[in-house]
Nucleic acid binder design. Structure first.
Length: 728
DNA sequence: ATTAGGG
DNA sequence: CCCTAAT
């Protein structure tokens, strides 16, 4: 090895060449690491398509909408305005850094890595390719075969898009036309709805549903896209409504795409050859949900105005996705095609957009949680599960504020005859949704991607009250196992219990499509078939995981939403979509004919253990650690632990090792880059010195080390092993 | 159970 | 901090 340079670390008599140690273990560098998933491409294409559509839409309809904007006041003026203000940033889409945590582009601005840039640059190419490929697929599915027998539509997953509110902290740098347009549209949409409503038009309601359906159909056509790239054609009599609805969708789609995209970017730090797009995107996304993704959060850059460790960075992280994905993809693709030939698979991940007003007093049906938390309900739209988050802040009075933007509905499985009309399909969907809501829901709390089951723990204990954890906090709606009547929206969260969702570990290659829906239905295979849940369904039926993940990376700290049944209704009603009636309007008769089954059978997924609450090292601890390492060297963490942290039960030797790692890193970066409680430079210097020293003296042969150790200790005012550190 | 690394 | 592979 070549010595880069010599450094003098202030030790009395030795120079320490800073030679990076070779990896002591080859682990982690395996092939898998490089395995950027090919399926990620899916996200790309979707994003690209969506973005394009969005732009087009904006331009084409902006003017018309704008003209109407002034006609009538929206019924929820304040709300709308509120949204306008907050959502402005969104319009710029992913270009607006800071708009939402999903912005995969952020890294670029942050000079996180060149790899990321590369990826971005490749985007255009990728998307075009993907699109082309998809086109071919579409053709096949659409024309080659006609749907046979029963038209089965499965709403496997109601993935939600989140319109993350950027909170006030976010500024939209280049809020140009697009943003303006966007807002306007939204605004108009509501107005239009109101208008229609006032006039007595009920078409309006259907409009949205229709849009959804159309979208889903389109989706289906695409066969393998997780997102809605295509815009449904407007055919509704109520032109305005239609358009509005579409726009709404588009927006969502964008969101989704963004999410996907971001993930894509994240996981593709190392660009690889792209292949056929397969809809494994979701899988990947799910993957993200896993604990590993949380880790990244802390590494976010400072551009997160709100806080130092928000969650954009994660997006920039490359992740290892090595689950034999390729093979799986392959299978999936084939199956998908087959399946599409005879069935309608709705795998719309988009969902409805939920533009809720967070923290909107007038709308919030806040409930005083039994502890000290107040929940602000956001407005939701049915079947959509968008979680918005705000920047939660820890008030001085020890209250934790959550802003729940939206919720999503559990997965639905719907089957209707191919002769069914679109209208009936809509109703079916509606019924399904209604059935779910009516079945009773309960709220689950997720922190760091893991459910918090112990309802008796306080927010403080669970870490929910901790600012650092707020961005990883999430709420989920879950089917009430007891099928009890809907609980009131003000029900205390603590009362709600989370039980284990079904575990759906499935083999990637499960040939589900062929078996037929009915067969697959009960089991996980169902989801797999759709392709959205390829990842081992480590999650419950609800796709809340995604949400959670998103939240984790959000720049805002707050969390998500929860409006239970009743609230949902209310929300829907007063929100942009006065179609609450739609729910009522739907004839129950159809319900029976249409089997809408909330996938909720299995409720036993051993949930991952809850993540430990974060406990930043104090300066004292750091000092103790430094001293111990100076004396013992690195690589003897067990000894370090025993020596200086024996009483600190919450500090494992792994923790100490990790801390040392971060200390070394911290010492190397500019002080401005550091976060958290500042560590005295003196300590950092010692860290560097010790690190360099021990790097050279790899394993410490006793004799030699002893000497060195002594010297180090001498030089730096020897301190006693820190015994004062005790577990809390 | 520890250690070493990647995330 | 978490997760894992390798000891």
């Amino acid at each position: 090895m070549v010595l880069k340079k010599r450094q003098y670390y202030g030790f009395t008599d030795f120079h320490v060449p800073s030679v990076p140690r070779g990896p002591r273990s080859a682990r982690g560098r395996g092939p898998h690491k490089k395995k950027a998933s090919d399926d990620q491409i899916c996200a790309f294409e979707l994003l690209a398509s969506l973005a394009g559509k969005l732009l087009q839409e904006s331009e084409s309809s902006a003017s018309s909408n704008a003209s109407e904007a002034n006609d009538q006041p929206a019924f929820s003026d304040s709300l709308i305005k509120h949204e306008e203000g907050e959502e402005l940033p969104l319009k710029t889409g992913y270009h607006d850094q800071g708009s939402y945590e999903e912005s995969a582009f952020i890294p670029e601005f942050d000079s996180v890595s060149r790899d990321q840039k590369c990826i971005l640059q490749e985007l255009p190419q990728v998307e075009s390719d993907s699109i082309l490929e998809r086109s071919s697929i579409i053709t096949n599915s659409d024309s080659s075969e006609k749907v046979s027998s029963d038209l089965k539509s499965v709403v496997c997953k109601s993935k939600t898009t989140c319109e993350n509110f950027s909170s006030k902290l976010q500024r939209s740098p280049d809020s140009g036309e697009s943003s303006g347009c966007y807002v306007e549209n939204r605004y108009n949409r509501q107005q239009a709805d109101d208008k229609l409503d006032a006039v007595g038009l009920t078409v309006n309601n259907t409009s949205n549903s229709e849009v959804l359906n159309n979208l889903r159909m389109k989706h289906h056509a695409l066969g393998n896209s997780d997102n809605d790239v295509k815009l449904p054609s407007c055919r509704s009599a109520v032109h305005n409504a239609s358009i509005l609805g579409h726009r709404n969708f588009i927006k969502l789609g964008l969101r989704d795409d963004d999410e996907n995209f971001s993930r894509f970017t994240k996981s593709n730090i190392k660009p690889k050859a792209f292949r056929l797009p397969s809809r494994i995107g979701d899988w990947r996304i799910r993957k993200l949900l896993t604990s590993k993704y949380w880790k990244a959060s802390p590494k976010l850059k400072d551009f997160e105005l709100s806080r130092g460790d928000g969650g954009m960075k994660p997006l920039c992280h490359k992740r290892k996705m090595y689950y034999g994905r390729e093979r799986y993809q392959h299978d999936t693709l084939h199956k998908r095609r087959k399946f599409s030939a005879r069935s309608l698979v709705v795998t719309n991940d988009g969902g409805f957009s939920c533009e809720s007003a967070c923290n909107s007093p007038e709308k919030s049906m806040d409930a005083e949680k039994n502890g000290s938390a107040t929940v602000f309900h956001g407005v939701n739209e049915m079947s959509s599960s968008v979680i918005g988050h705000h920047t939660p802040f820890r008030s001085t009075d020890c209250h934790v504020k959550f802003s729940i933007k939206s919720i999503r509905v559990p997965e639905l499985f719907i089957e209707v005859p191919e002769t069914a009309t679109v209208g009936s399909l809509k109703r079916t969907v509606m019924d399904a949704v209604t059935a779910i809501l009516g079945g009773g829901l309960r709220v689950g709390v997720v922190l760091h991607g893991k459910k918090v089951r112990d309802d008796n723990r306080t927010l403080l204990q669970t870490g929910i009250a901790s600012e650092e954890n707020l961005d990883t906090l999430g709420f989920t709606l879950e089917p009430n196992p007891m099928q009890a009547s809907p609980f009131s929206c003000t029900e205390d969260a603590s009362v709600l219990k989370c039980d284990t969702p079904k575990l759906v570990s499935r083999s990637p290659a499960t040939p589900v499509l062929d078996s037929g829906i009915s067969e697959a239905l009960p089991e996980p295979s169902f989801s797999t078939r759709l392709g959205n849940h390829i990842e081992s369904n480590n999650d419950s039926n609800f796709t809340h995981t995604d949400i959670v993940t998103d939240e984790a990376h959000a720049d805002s700290k707050a969390l998500v939403a929860i409006p239970p049944y009743s609230s949902c209704t209310d929300i829907v009603t007063d929100n942009a979509h006065p179609d609450s009636k739609a729910l009522v309007a739907i004839p129950p008769a159809n319900a029976e004919a249409l089997a809408a089954v909330p996938i909720n059978q299995k409720t036993k997924r051993p949930e991952p253990v809850q993540r430990r609450t974060r406990r930043p090292f104090s300066v004292t601890e750091v000092e103790a650690l430094v001293q111990a390492v100076e004396e013992l060297g690195t690589g003897r963490w067990r000894d370090v632990k025993l020596r200086s942290f024996e009483n600190a039960d919450h500090r494992t030797y792994v923790d100490l090792k990790d801390k040392w790692k971060t200390l070394v890193h911290t010492a190397k970066i500019a002080p401005q880059q550091r976060r958290g409680e500042p560590v005295p430079q003196e300590l950092l210097d010692r860290v560097l010195a010790a690190h360099a020293y021990w790097s050279q003296h790899q394993v410490k042969p006793h004799s030699k080390n002893q000497t060195a150790t002594s010297k180090i200790a001498e030089v730096h005012a020897p301190r006693n092993g820190i015994e004062g550190i005790h577990s809390i």
